[in-house]
Design a protein around this nucleic acid. Structure first.
Length: 467
DNA sequence: TAGCTCGTTGGACAA
DNA sequence: TTTGTCCAACGAGCT
């Protein structure tokens, strides 16, 4: 009699609050597998930083499973069909993913396997509210965050209680599966040591991160989250991205804390993640097309030198450079700095938002197709609920406001660290004497700004008016 | 249906 | 130094 159930791990690299795994465990013996499927992903195969994360996350997961995670690379349907034959599999369970290519692939697999008599079931492990359940009164999807969240989500059923880790999990392993190293997720040139030093990957590390945030960040979250030098943000995004922790676990953990502005603000940040998934589900073109068609005529510039300076953190604008270097060194960037660096690329340098989206995709350990695409469309102003076009961040003002003591800029732009706080965010405004005293020679020890902030802002405003 | 209000994250300038 | 006002335009969402 067939009793083996496959649990196909994808973006749910955890044992706790894993509905598909729980359901599989209840049926008896489980064959837990992971498949690296770059071909189906096409343009959106995992970026380099995400691969580093995945390597360590799979290591941790395999450890939790007592070394019984079976790993493959290739076409999932072929692999699943082979395993069905080899291990007399009667059922295959997984938790849903929401990238358009994943939805397409998974639907086809489900159809094919069901036809062959296999019990195939998918579950929700990654979202608080499924995108198709939150709709306006007229049955169409929301396009603006606030009504989506306030009216749509908060009036829907509350997020469910997380499930415990299955108590009786009997796993078997396929001896023919690949060793993790065969996926070649780590780069051959060791640029990733900064990422490894900065982060601990895996389910236990994610739980620890949540505890830390609740103890140290939550009580000042609403205000403190804007200051990149502080450690007030949760830093849970890459753990969420790989499913090392679920949004339900986070939501419910915070229920025990005071219902104040800090908790509300953090909840709405979780809801922003939901909203990005929601937009992607209802408008799959989010990943590549301006949601506002009038932006198809926007006069973007093509300047590969400027793009390169931005990528390398050599724009001469300290807050932007600090953010881009933080990204390169650690695989993450503080939320406010993402907005400032994004705005600078799209508005001051007037480079197409897809250049920024692509760079972030490759460099961020939390690179998420929904959040990354929605974020860039918002920054560029071509998203559905974008800010008014005349809102253009001034990266010097933002630096003075949100990094007033310069700790963040000094951390990542050491070549100007000796400048007084007053000039740190805009060294080109410092008198010659001050620069000299700090041993800063603009154009030599640190770049001159690659654009004039005021002139490029006005040029962007003109370009927007032209729409 | 027509009309009203509002829109995550701002900047520049004047008083 | 801080606070208020304008920028300027449109569609989503609701009543």
């Amino acid at each position: 009699m067939k009793t083996t159930t496959i649990h196909w791990f994808r973006q749910d690299l955890r044992l706790a609050d894993n509905p598909a795994l729980c359901a599989a465990a209840q049926r008896g013996e489980v064959l837990p597998i992971y498949i690296l499927d770059d071909d189906s992903a096409g343009d959106w195969a995992l970026g380099a930083a995400s691969r580093v994360w995945l390597h360590h996350s799979l290591t941790a997961l395999n450890h939790s499973l007592g070394g019984r995670l079976s790993i493959y690379r290739g076409k999932p349907l072929d692999i699943l069909q082979r395993l069905i034959q080899q291990f007399e599999v009667s059922a295959i369970f997984w938790n849903r993913c929401y990238q358009p290519w994943q939805i397409q692939r998974d639907s086809a697999i489900k159809k094919s396997l069901k036809t062959a008599g296999i019990n195939v079931q998918s579950f929700n492990a990654n979202l608080l509210w499924e995108p198709w359940t939150v709709l306006k009164a007229d049955g169409t999807p929301y396009k603006v965050f606030t009504p989506y969240y306030r009216k749509g989500c908060l009036h829907s059923a509350s997020p469910a209680q997380p499930m415990p880790t299955p108590q009786h999990l009997h796993c078997r392993r396929d001896d023919g599966a690949l060793p993790l190293e065969a996926l070649a997720l780590l780069p051959t040139i060791a640029w990733h040591t900064g990422i490894e030093q900065h982060w601990a990957m895996g389910e236990a590390a994610a739980a620890e991160k949540l505890t830390q945030f609740i103890e140290a960040g939550l009580s000042d979250y609403r205000h403190g989250r804007d200051f990149p030098a502080q450690y007030t943000t949760s830093n849970l995004s890459p753990h969420l991205r790989f499913g090392e922790i679920s949004p339900r676990q986070i939501w419910q953990a915070l229920q025990a804390y005071p219902d104040d502005d800090n908790r509300d603000t953090f909840y709405s940040e979780l809801a922003w993640r939901e909203f990005a998934y929601y937009l992607l589900y209802h408008q799959p073109a989010l990943t590549h097309a301006n949601l506002q068609a009038k932006f198809n005529h926007f006069p973007w510039l093509e300047d590969s030198q400027a793009l390169r300076a931005w990528q390398r953190g050599q724009t001469g604008i300290p807050l932007v450079d600090a953010g881009m270097r933080e990204l390169w060194q650690t695989g993450t960037m503080h939320n406010r700095v993402r907005m400032v660096a994004g705005s600078f690329l799209v508005k001051n340098l007037r480079q197409h938002w897809r250049h920024g989206q692509r760079w972030f995709w490759d460099c961020l350990v939390d690179a998420d197709l929904a959040s990354n695409s929605a974020g860039w469309q918002w920054v560029a102003g071509c998203g559905v609920d974008a800010a008014p076009y005349f809102r253009i961040f001034n990266p010097a003002t933002q630096g003075q406001k949100f990094d007033p003591t310069g700790d963040y800029i000094r951390r990542y732009v050491p070549e100007i660290a000796t400048l007084p706080d007053k000039y740190l965010a805009a060294p080109w405004t410092a008198p010659a004497k001050v620069l000299q005293a700090a041993n800063v020679v603009l154009g030599e020890t640190y770049p001159e700004p690659i654009v004039d902030l005021k002139a490029s802002r006005l040029a962007a405003l003109e370009a927007f008016k032209g729409l």
